Simulated assay, not measured.
Amino acid sequence: MKLKIFTLAFAVMALYSCGPTQNKEKNNTTNATNDSAITEAQWVLQQLEGEDIDPSKNGKLISFTLNTKDNKVTGYAGCNSFFGNYTLGAGNRISFSTLGLTKMACSEDDFKESELMNVLDMTDNYRINGNQLELNVGKRAPLAIFKKVDKNAEPIVEKYWKLKTLEGKDVKMSKNQEKEIYFTLKMNENRVVGFAGCNGMSGTYKLEERNRISFSQMATTMMACPDLDVNEAEFLKVFELTDNYTINGDTLSLNVGRRAPLAVFEAVYL
């Protein structure tokens, strides 16, 4: 009889001891999944304290990445790079510590880096909604909102592309030309901005798989232009015809089908 009671007690203890262990393992799996949603991705700034931000500064994106290997955070604040440590906890808790900046001299027009660094210092929790990340303190409105970007994808966006050749002919800046011909693809609302030789230009773009690209609603300002080496109408025609692109290092070609490039551009890092 004593043997039966002892066996039953042992079985009950074993059952209870297994339960919490399984729950703990399940919780650990959940936390790991949550952690992986925020780490090893480039988070590009979209809003800071409720204000929309253009993340492209000096040819780079205001952004950060959480590296799981050593729990380090690295990023770009608009003029200087920053670095430090981060800690993740249950319930989407996050904190940043020992943050430092490089010591580049920044112009007054540059993004106020101290505001971003202050937000990181205050943050104690985060929320992910699709490809957006909110950094918060307590239950307040988000301190900052970031957009997830694949670090290896879309190398064409947020770069200053200076025109080098048009229909196979080298392009040089005219003496009476205000600035060089260029364009940039902005992440915000998929906008195109640039300069066509005399007039500013704008429009929208769409990127698809296999380096497919299309431009629409391309328009220019209405300045009266002196004689230029580059015909603006011919340059704008490139965007109308283009259906794909190729990138080789800092060289971009806009193409139609498999023809020779309509135009070739060079990335300039300001």
Rank of each mutant, 00 (worst) to 15 (best):
S114E: 15
L228H: 01
C225T: 03
R127T: 15
G257D: 09
G19Q: 15
F64M: 02
A260I: 01
K112R: 10
T220F: 05
K159W: 04
V157N: 11
L88N: 07
M173D: 07
A41F: 13
F64S: 02
T123N: 02
N136G: 00
A224Q: 14
R140H: 06
V230D: 05
R210G: 09
F10P: 04
N248H: 06
K186C: 04
G75Q: 04
A77W: 07
Y269F: 09
M104I: 08
N129S: 15
T102D: 04
I53Q: 03
Q217E: 14
E240A: 02
T30N: 12
N85V: 00
G130D: 13
L101Y: 06
N31S: 13
F215W: 10
T242W: 03
K139V: 13
E113V: 06
E158A: 00
K159L: 07
V192P: 02
N129P: 08
F195V: 08
T7S: 12
R258D: 15
N131G: 05
Y16R: 10
M187R: 15
C225H: 00
F183E: 12
D250T: 13
M1Q: 15
L143P: 02
A263C: 06
N28S: 12
V268S: 13
R191P: 07
S56H: 14
M222H: 10
M1I: 12
C106G: 00
L185F: 08
L207I: 10
S174I: 05
S17T: 14
V171L: 04
G84Y: 07
V268Q: 14
G84P: 06
T33G: 08
L270M: 12
A9P: 09
A153E: 14
G138L: 03
T33Q: 14
G91T: 09
A144D: 07
D229S: 12
G91I: 05
I38R: 00
S107G: 11
I181F: 03
A90Q: 15
E113H: 07
D52M: 10
L252P: 05
G91Q: 13
M218C: 05
G89I: 12
E208G: 10
L185W: 07
E51S: 09
G197N: 01
Y205F: 11
T21N: 11
L241A: 11
E189I: 00
I128G: 02
N71G: 10
G59E: 12
N255R: 11
F239I: 03
W161H: 05
E180C: 00
R140I: 07
F265D: 07
L120W: 07
G249L: 10
V192C: 01
M218D: 04
I62V: 11
L120G: 03
R259E: 13
N31R: 14
E266G: 01
L228D: 03
C18G: 08
L45G: 03
F215L: 09
M117W: 07
E234C: 00
V268E: 14
R210N: 15
N23E: 15
R127L: 14
L66G: 02
N27M: 14
E113L: 02
F6T: 14
A153F: 03
S17K: 11
E189K: 12
S97Y: 08
F96G: 01
